[in-house]
Computed example of a mutant assay.
Amino acid sequence: MATDDVWIWDGGRVSLDFANTLRNRWRTTPEETLRVPDDLMDWLREAHLLAAGTTGAATASLLLSARRLRESVDRAVLAVAAGPMPEPGDVTLLNRSAAAAPRPALQLLIIEDRLEPAGITAPFTADPTLALALIAQDAVDLLLSAESRRVRVCGADRCALRFLDRSPARNRRWCSMSRCGNRTKVRLHQARTRQSGGITEG
């Protein structure tokens, strides 16, 4: 079972955070963090989509549905960010999933002197199926917004997490500066130092 410190919340949207539950997508075999149904329940609680006091366990079939939804979200947002349309099958799955729950009331945030939707920030349901519907709704909202063109893949060689670039210059490269940005800069500096040292010695 995954532990709480496994979850990463740098996507900028709950649907991107959900896509990021499959890690190291650059590998032939990515790392699955939703390994058992309880992992899914834990993630939904940590994402504030499932009420903290919810009891009971998710089923294996719900976990499979969640993984299918996750991959449809991932394919669709990357397709739209790159320009073309998502696959019709992914659109159908997102629409069907999103329709499984009533829409939550919109909330507002002030970000850099402009109003932005706050997204889903509070526990909404005791039903994990409806919690997954909220993820699908967030993905639909993202795909229909101008922000869909600001979805990025982390520039670190061994990361590939998805995130929403809200930087003013639209040039954010890392999912997290502390996790990937600084580490990459340190590695590049060390490589340059080794290379220059080798040239000097030669």
Rank of each mutant, 00 (worst) to 15 (best):
K185A: 07
G202I: 05
R172V: 00
T193I: 06
R183W: 11
G181N: 06
W174A: 02
Q195S: 11
L164S: 05
C154H: 02
Q195V: 03
I199R: 07
N182S: 06
L188N: 11
G197P: 08
P168L: 04
S178R: 14
T184D: 10
W174P: 00
R172D: 09
Q195G: 15
R162K: 06
S196N: 15
R162W: 04
D157N: 12
M177Y: 09
R194Q: 07
G197T: 15
H189L: 15
S178V: 08
C180T: 06
R172A: 02
L164A: 02
A169T: 12
C180W: 10
F163K: 00
C159P: 01
V186L: 10
G197Y: 09
R158D: 09
P168E: 14
T200S: 11
Q190W: 12
R194D: 05
G198M: 15
C175F: 06
I199D: 12
C180G: 04
D157W: 05
C175M: 05
N182F: 14
N171P: 00
R179I: 14
L161P: 01
A160V: 04
P168F: 10
A169F: 08
I199C: 14
C159F: 08
H189N: 11
G181A: 05
W174S: 01
S196E: 04
R170G: 04
D165R: 00
Q195P: 00
C180F: 03
A156W: 08
P168D: 05
C180M: 02
E201N: 14
G181E: 15
R172F: 01
T193P: 02
R166T: 08
G202W: 15
M177G: 03
A191Y: 03
L161Q: 08
S178F: 05
G198Q: 15
R162D: 01
A169K: 10
E201H: 08
R194C: 03
W174G: 00
W174R: 00
T200K: 05
L164W: 02
T184E: 09
G181F: 10
S178A: 11
N182C: 04
C180H: 04
R170Q: 13
R187E: 07
T193F: 08
G155Y: 09
T193V: 10
I199Y: 09
S167R: 04
M177P: 01
R192N: 13
S167N: 13
C159H: 04
N171S: 07
Q190L: 13
D157R: 15
A160H: 11
C159W: 11
C159T: 02
G198P: 00
R183F: 03
R187L: 14
R179V: 13
W174K: 00
Q190C: 02
R179Q: 15
L161D: 05
T184G: 00
R158H: 15
K185G: 01
Q195L: 13
R183I: 01
L161W: 07
S196A: 14
Q190F: 11
R158W: 03
D157H: 06
G155S: 11
A160L: 05
R162Q: 03
S176Y: 01
R194P: 00
N182Y: 04
G202M: 15
D157T: 08
R173D: 13
